[in-house]
């Protein structure tokens, strides 16, 4: 087993009477390609929110490497290398694609503190942003406002912002959600081309994507871990098939 990059110990979160995340022990290896699957309402997004510090856990710990980050705020965790995308786009819609990425880079390198130095003179930032956009085939849209892009390309910007933070752990919450299936391969290609050393955890409903991309799969049901293994193990696990994969109508509805 390779080095563990991010892990949780007995992580739980309740909302009133509802236990959204129940006692989860989870390990994400360095350089992992790990998928998190489970039916709607299984607590996957809540789990991501606990990892990123959007929500405090009711119980349990989150460790990045050896460091306990349970008490750290979201912004501090980002500085330590945890980045994420959202299931529903959270972009600077009125700004250009290039600015969206520049804002993220400026924040990462600490330039955003400087109040009197023109952002336009930080050519290093702009340069880096352009190169990133080029690798994602977004360079031609760099000057467009995000709101002017088709949704599929907006999802790419969502990904670009996360990558711009140079994370060591990247949490992708249904990166292709809402994208017409004809275009979703663009996003998935980009996900596949992510640098090898980033540990990637992806929430995804499309099983074809999961089995193509992931080297490890975790199944969550009812807020708890249900099963974990290689894609092949998960696919052949009869219990998983029963609660999840076997539900043909469910799968059809999300593909």
């Amino acid at each position: 087993m390779t080095e563990v990059r991010l892990q949780t110990q007995a992580l739980s979160r309740r909302f009133g009477a509802l236990v959204a995340v129940r006692n989860i022990d989870f390990k994400l290896a360095a350089g992992a390609r790990h998928a998190l699957i489970g039916p709607n309402g299984a607590g996957k997004t809540t789990f991501i929110n606990l990892l990123t510090g959007v929500l405090p856990p009711t119980r349990g710990r989150v460790l990045l490497g050896d460091r306990d980050i349970t008490g750290l705020a979201q912004a501090e965790r980002v500085k330590l290398g945890i980045a994420r995308t959202f299931q529903i786009n959270r972009l600077f819609r009125g700004l250009s694609v290039l600015e969206n990425v520049c804002i993220a880079i400026a924040e990462r390198v600490g330039a955003a503190r400087s109040m009197f130095y023109p952002a336009g003179k930080r050519t290093d930032i702009i340069d880096e942003a352009m190169q990133l956009l080029q690798t994602l085939a977004l360079a031609d849209a760099a000057r467009l406002r995000v709101s002017e892009l088709p949704y599929g390309r907006q999802r790419l910007v969502e990904l670009a912002i996360a990558i711009a933070l140079r994370p060591t752990v990247l949490l992708l919450d249904e990166p292709a959600a809402g994208v017409p299936s004809a275009e979703s391969h663009i996003i998935l290609d980009a996900v596949e081309r992510l640098p090898e050393d980033i540990a990637v955890l992806i929430i995804e409903h499309d099983m074809d994507v999961v089995f193509r991309f992931a080297r490890r799969v975790t199944v969550m049901v009812g807020g708890a871990l249900f099963a974990e293994g290689t894609p092949r193990e998960i696919e052949s696990n009869p219990q998983v098939r029963e609660v999840y994969l076997g539900q043909a109508p469910y799968r059809a509805a999300h593909v």
């Binding site: 965790r77 980002v78 400026a106 924040e107 023109p118």
Partner: peptide
């Protein structure tokens, strides 16, 4: 000067999407 600085740019980021600013590690 202020609004064209990187600081000013981050302010527009806060205006456009405050949740995203949190998620990129900005001390909003």
């Amino acid at each position: 000067t202020l609004v064209y600085s990187a600081f000013g740019q981050s302010l527009t980021g806060i205006r456009e999407n405050i949740l995203r600013m949190h998620a990129i590690g900005s001390p909003v």
